[in-house]
Design a binder for these strands. Structure first.
Length: 118
DNA sequence: ATTCTGACAGCAA
DNA sequence: TTTGCTGCCAGAA
C-alpha cells in the first residue's frame, strides 16, 4: 500500500497524455483554456501543468491543436512556443479566429469547455 | 532523493 | 479599476 511514488502505472501514461487527449478533442473553430483542461483533469488550479504538458506535445506523434489552447483571457501566452511568435496566431486566424494584440476576439463565444461539452 | 522550473489562475493591496 | 504576488501539480536536472 505504499505506492507513495514511482511506477504510476495505475494512471495513464502520464498527465501529459490526458492533456493531449483533451486538446486533441477540441473541435475545429473552437478554443479552450488551460484552466478548463486542468479542471477537467481534476487538477483545477494547476493550469500550469496543462501548459507544461503542451510544451511536450511536440513529442507526440499525433497532431495536437495546442494553438487552440489559450489562457483564461484568451491571450496567446504560448505563441512563442510554436517556433515563431506568429505561428500560433496564423493557425488561429486560419481557423477563423480573430486575433488582436495577441488576444482572441470573441473568446467566450468560441470557448469550448471539455467539462461542459464532454 | 531534493530542488527548480513551468504555455496559469486566483486573490490581495 | 489595475497591478503584483502566491499557490498548484507534475516532470526534469
Amino acid at each position: 500500500m505504499k505506492r507513495k511514488s514511482s511506477v504510476p502505472e495505475n494512471k495513464n501514461e502520464g498527465f501529459f497524455n490526458r492533456v493531449y487527449d483533451v486538446t486533441r478533442m477540441v473541435p475545429y473553430g473552437r478554443i479552450t483554456s488551460y484552466g478548463a483542461i486542468a479542471r477537467y483533469l481534476g487538477t483545477a488550479g494547476s493550469a500550469r501543468m496543462v501548459g507544461w504538458a503542451l510544451n511536450s506535445s511536440h513529442t507526440d506523434t499525433d497532431f495536437i491543436p495546442a494553438h487552440r489552447v489559450v489562457n483564461r483571457i484568451g491571450m496567446l501566452t504560448g505563441k512563442h512556443h510554436f517556433g515563431n511568435s506568429s505561428t500560433m496566431q496564423q493557425l488561429l486566424e486560419n481557423e477563423g479566429f480573430i486575433i488582436e494584440n495577441d488576444r482572441v476576439i470573441d473568446f467566450a463565444g468560441k470557448f469550448w469547455d471539455p467539462m461542459t461539452e464532454l
